[in-house]
Amino acid sequence: MKPSRSEFITVRELKYHIRHWGNEDAPKLFVLHGWMDVSASFQFMVDCLQQDWHVIAPDWRGFGLTASTIADSYWFPDYVADLDAILQHYSPHQPINLLGHSMGANVVLHYAGIRPQRIRKLINLEGFGLPVTKPAQAPERYAQWLDELRNPPSLRTYASQAEVAKRLQKTNPRLSDERAHFLAQHWAAPNADGAWEILGDPAHKNVSPLLYRVDEVLACWQAISAPVLWVEAADTDVWKWMGAKDSARIEIDRRIAVIADVRQAMVADAGHMLHHDQPQVLAQMIERFLE
Rank of each mutant, 00 (worst) to 15 (best):
L199F: 12
L274R: 02
V164Y: 11
D52F: 00
A283K: 04
L32V: 11
H275W: 00
D253A: 13
P135L: 04
L65R: 03
Q280A: 15
D47G: 02
T69S: 14
D261H: 12
Y158E: 12
I70T: 12
G22L: 08
M36W: 00
L168S: 11
A234R: 11
H101W: 10
Y142K: 10
E216I: 07
L168F: 09
Y79V: 06
A195Y: 07
A71Q: 11
E251G: 10
K170I: 07
D177L: 06
S208F: 00
V108N: 15
R141N: 05
L274V: 01
T69E: 12
F76D: 08
R150S: 07
I56F: 01
G200F: 05
E140M: 12
D72M: 13
H110Q: 10
A143D: 13
R288I: 04
Y111W: 05
R213W: 14
A85E: 14
E126R: 03
L130I: 01
K15C: 02
Q137F: 11
G100S: 06
A180C: 09
A203C: 12
N97C: 06
T133A: 08
E148F: 02
E251R: 13
I256C: 11
Q222H: 13
H33M: 02
V108I: 15
P139W: 07
D277S: 02
W187A: 04
H54L: 00
D59V: 06
